[in-house]
Design a protein around this nucleic acid. Sequence first.
DNA 1: ATGACGGAGCGTCTCCGA
Length: 261
Amino acid sequence: MTVRVATWNVNSIVPRLPRVLDWLDRTAPDVLCLQEIKNTTEAFPAEEITARGYEVAAYGLGRWNGVAILSRVGLDDVVRGLPGEPGFDGQAEARAIGATCGGIRLWSVYVPNGREPQNPHYAYKLEWFEKLSDLVGEEMRNARPFAVLGDFNVAPTDDDVWDITLFAESTHVTGPERAALKKLRDAGLSDVFPRPLKYDHPFTYWDYRAGNFPNNKGMRIDLVYGNEVFAKAVTDSYVDREARKGKGPSDHAPIVVDLEL
DNA sequence: ATGACGGAGCGTCTCCGA
């Protein structure tokens, strides 16, 4: 069975909907994990997506964050929220949703940004990673294909940012953040490394400002972490930088993963 | 070469993003 799975931080689903619909039509993923839908579960604009044959599971609590999974190969055992996840400043946040699609267990995640290393948001980020690690430990008890996809807000290596010298005192590249990723790999997940459609590095994010996209000043912070049976089934993976072009894009590009299961 | 911030909310500004 061939399955195409994708992940995309859309930076708000409502203004991005025309682009997402067009991208679904052209790319035809079986499953699409979304991050930063920036609205509520109830307000998710599902109609035109379901008209294309996808089931929708969304989880959003308001104007920030929010995640979703779209699937045309089944959408079962949906879990909204990371078990035991911390909130920030006393508020729950919608940053994870899990579902089983076509026999594959998938989690769409939007890891907290961290802001600056001294900011309480950074400690929250590391705490959130701990709960993600706990979840992965639980999911790894099953033999089925399993992957965590989404915006991890960490560049795994110095090659995953356009110029590491500009990241002193910055989040996304610190030792503890990278150690959190390593802990996921030590638990048995592999970084499904995508090919870039252009240039040398498969960046997935480029700031809107200062011409960062045309200058390819990007970061690889959106990741696909799969267990062994998932990773071994991968036949191709790429970052669709075409989706970052033109008027009204997200600041992230989608990652597409093809599997033969 | 697909381009020089953009989204949301009670909002003409602030917060957030990485």
